[in-house]
Design a protein around this nucleic acid. Structure first.
Length: 734
DNA sequence: TCTGTAGGCGTTTTT
DNA sequence: CGCCTACAGA
């Protein structure tokens, strides 16, 4: 920590750094240097005020953000940074629970369930209630349970407040789901937070230890916290009250995941003595970019007006490109990147392509491959989500926690060893009736008369598990993985299979071993007498996303969703797919709140750009394998015309796009009169809610054909399933 | 029990 | 379009 670190700050930033005592709310606009404020603040506490690093807690949402902050703090105050608790909500909770969860009656060796595991538990809960998965969509139920958990509602509370039959049933399933998790010695993602809060509520002594310890608490991206996180933070900070939260209401994009804007409003209510600092100077974007983005978000009604201004006057206007279809859109972007690299000395790492949904990455990938442009898709399918990687990890989980039934179900017949579906179902019934974990149920079934046929196979499997348990007892993570893959015959099986697909899977497994070795190197000095390095490795892989590992120092073009883009910045940004129904997404248009969140998301995407921002949309696009027609996003109308310029491909060998729906772009610099018409006919896609003047409300289930004779199937709430000719149906968005 | 295939269904966004 | 599930046949 040097004087320079402080002097480089503007007055507001400095105030936020120096105001260390008492509650502080920092409203930090996009690109206003909030990470810098947070890291300097930590360095100031340690370096100048002499606070013990162990007394500081800093919470972020992504491991990446935590890692970046740690790096910067280290630069300012060296090794002392290691003592700071600087991590994501989830990893902090894991740390606390691994220490103290036994108070709640859980074993400390609990497994952490990912989404797929937890969906499996939901399905099992449905089976136990004899409910057909068709009658109650497991995914929807899971979502519902998540919502309850985000709000901090426990099963008995959900049951108590349930109104109709359906809700009572869902609440009962929630209770069963929780019971199954407990039996499996497992916690889902939300449990990590929820159980920590419960632990603190029910055991004030435990909380006392932590709240005395953390003299200073800081929270990044505060606008994205949910109610449980809110409670957690306030539990921890209420002793010393030195709580600093940093957020931007305009960048709140996780309401769908339970983020609650009340958390910002309540902050001022709960801490009437709070100091509020506003960071409104943007250091990132040029003025047209910032003006354009601000123009969009200013259309939100439920918003406190605020001013954000840039230091970077001038700069190129925002460019707008209309493509005939998604392929042309992608080709345009990729050709631009190629020529900017060739002719303007840009680097691939300067570019990012954003889209609303992961599925949209595909067209871009095709074009990038076509033009030999190196790229990375950030997010999407995680490395640790690949089937073979999950299999290997499931073995490890099962060995550490034999009750982990999701892990068992996953690998019980991988590679094939003759323990199939029928056997597992029988084991499940056994486990249910005896109230024992699935593995125990499997053993008991094998011992019974009915299970005589599979008994030898089960015995061999059990023996394998016992042997592995012995062998990996003190093994390092990479050794443990290697042994599992070897002893189970998994590797031999893949090698025998051969072919490019098997080869790719083998490669992924080699990568997994390498990742484990990296982990060992990075944590070589850690000595935790309670938990082995393998346990710590399993925790880490459960909690990291690809985004965390993503490193832009690789010189490649980055592709990601607008959500993933938050917190990042690029010299040149392409924001694609700006069509009604895509962005804003059709599924988010249910209510004003949904639309406003889409608008903030658009704002987030736009404000990632430092120098150049190009926005594009396509007249038609392939969705679900069929062609759909789109209208320009309403957000385009909201960008102040003065900062926008329409562009055409400037590549001579590209034939000019045939225009069918609108005048040639050159003739209208900025004109979306047709975008003002009803949005209902713009894009039709399954899942979209519509209203028919006579038939009432319904949901589109299928789109047939295209053009003027395009028909749709709509399931109406009262009138049932109807097939309508779109052009004559006179539908409104419902 | 395993393998192949036909049909159905889905996409928001993610720690 | 591509993934997953259900089902039929060996």
């Amino acid at each position: 920590m040097t004087e320079q670190d402080l002097e480089g700050l503007n007055p507001e930033q400095r105030e936020a750094v120096l105001h260390t005592e008492g509650p502080l709310l920092v409203l930090a606009g996009a690109g206003s240097g909030k990470t810098r404020v947070l890291t300097t603040r930590i360095a100031w506490l340690i370096g100048s005020l002499g606070i013990a690093p162990e007394g500081i807690l800093a919470v972020t949402f992504t491991n990446k953000a935590a890692g970046e902050m740690r790096e910067r703090v280290e630069k300012m105050c060296g090794d002392a940074a290691a003592g700071v608790w600087l991590a994501t909500f989830h990893s902090i909770c894991v740390r606390i629970l691994r220490r103290d969860i036994s108070h709640l009656g859980y074993a400390r060796g609990f497994s952490i369930y990912d989404e797929a595991d937890s969906l499996g538990v939901v399905k099992e809960a449905l089976r136990r209630h004899d409910i057909d998965p068709k009658a109650e969509d497991p995914r929807r139920l899971r979502w519902r349970i998540d919502q309850w958990k985000n709000a901090g509602v426990l099963p008995h509370q959900a049951e108590a407040s349930a109104g109709d039959f359906e809700e009572r049933r869902a609440a009962a399933l929630y209770a069963t789901y929780q019971k199954l998790l407990a039996e499996a010695g497992a916690l889902d993602f939300n449990d990590l937070l929820l159980l920590t809060v419960q632990l603190f509520e029910r055991f004030p002594d435990v909380l006392g230890w932590y709240r005395r310890r953390f003299q200073y608490v800081m929270v990044d991206e505060y606008q994205d916290t949910n109610r449980v996180q809110y409670r957690l933070i306030h539990q921890l900070a209420s002793e010393h009250r030195n709580l600093c939260v940093v957020g931007d209401p305009d960048q709140s994009i996780y309401a769908w995941r339970g983020a609650d804007i009340r958390n910002i409003l309540d902050f001022e209510r709960d801490y009437p003595d709070a100091t509020v600092v506003k960071l409104e100077r943007n250091y990132r974007s040029t003025s047209p970019i910032l003006e354009g983005a601000s123009g969009v978000v200013a259309h939100n009604v439920a918003r406190r007006a605020r001013g954000l201004y840039t230091e970077r006057e001038g700069g190129a206007p925002i460019r707008l490109f209309e493509a005939q279809d998604d392929r042309e859109e992608a080709q345009f972007v990729v050709r631009e990147i190629v020529s900017a690299v060739r002719e303007q000395g840009r680097r691939y790492g300067d570019f990012a392509i954003f889209y609303r949904t992961n599925a949209q990455s595909r067209v871009f990938e095709e074009q990038l491959l076509e033009y030999d442009v190196p790229y990375v898709v950030v997010g999407g399918v995680r490395f640790y989500d690949r089937a073979e990687v999950k299999d290997a990890l499931a073995y490890l989980r099962l060995l550490r926690q034999p009750a982990d039934s999701a892990a068992l179900r996953r690998i019980v017949n991988k590679p094939a060893r003759g323990i199939g579906k029928t056997t597992v179902e029988a084991a499940e019934r056994e486990a249910e009736s005896q109230g024992v974990p699935l593995l125990e149920g499997l053993k008991r079934f094998a011992d019974s008369e009915a299970g005589a046929r599979v008994a030898p196979k089960v015995a061999r499997f059990v023996e394998l598990l016992e042997r592995l348990t012995r062998e990996i007892g003190s093994a390092s993570p990479s050794e443990a993985i290697a042994r599992v893959l070897d002893q189970t015959g998994y590797l031999v099986d893949l090698e025998r299979e051969g072919g490019p697909e098997a080869e790719a899977r083998l490669e992924n497994l080699r990568e997994l071993v390498a990742a484990a070795q990296d982990f060992e190197r990075a944590n070589a000095e850690i000595r935790d007498e309670e938990r082995s390095l393998l346990d710590l490795f399993l925790d880490q892989v459960a909690l990291v996303s690809d985004l965390d590992e993503y490193d832009r120092r690789d010189e490649v073009v980055s592709l990601m969703t607008a959500h993933s883009a938050k917190g990042l910045e690029y010299p040149v940004v392409y924001l694609s797919g700006m069509e009604e129904g895509v962005f804003p997404h059709a599924g988010a248009l249910r209510d004003d709140a949904g639309l406003e969140e889409e608008r903030r998301l658009c704002y987030v995407g736009m404000t990632r750009a430092m120098e150049k921002l190009t926005i594009s949309f396509a007249q038609q696009r392939l969705r679900f394998g069929s062609r759909t027609f789109g209208m320009p996003s309403r957000f385009l109308d909201e960008i102040p015309p003065a900062v926008v310029e329409r562009v055409r491909p400037r590549f001579s060998h590209v034939p000019p796009p045939a225009r069918t729906r609108s005048a040639p772009p050159g003739e209208r610099a900025y004109d979306y009169s047709y975008a003002q018409e009803s949005h209902a006919e713009g894009i039709v896609a399954p899942g979209l809610r519509v209203r028919h003047p006579r038939l009432g409300n319904g949901v589109i289930v299928k789109v047939l054909g295209n053009g003027p004779s395009q028909k749709i199937d709509v399931r109406f709430e009262h009138a049932g399933l109807k097939r309508l000719v779109l052009r004559f149906a006179n539908l409104e968005l419902g």
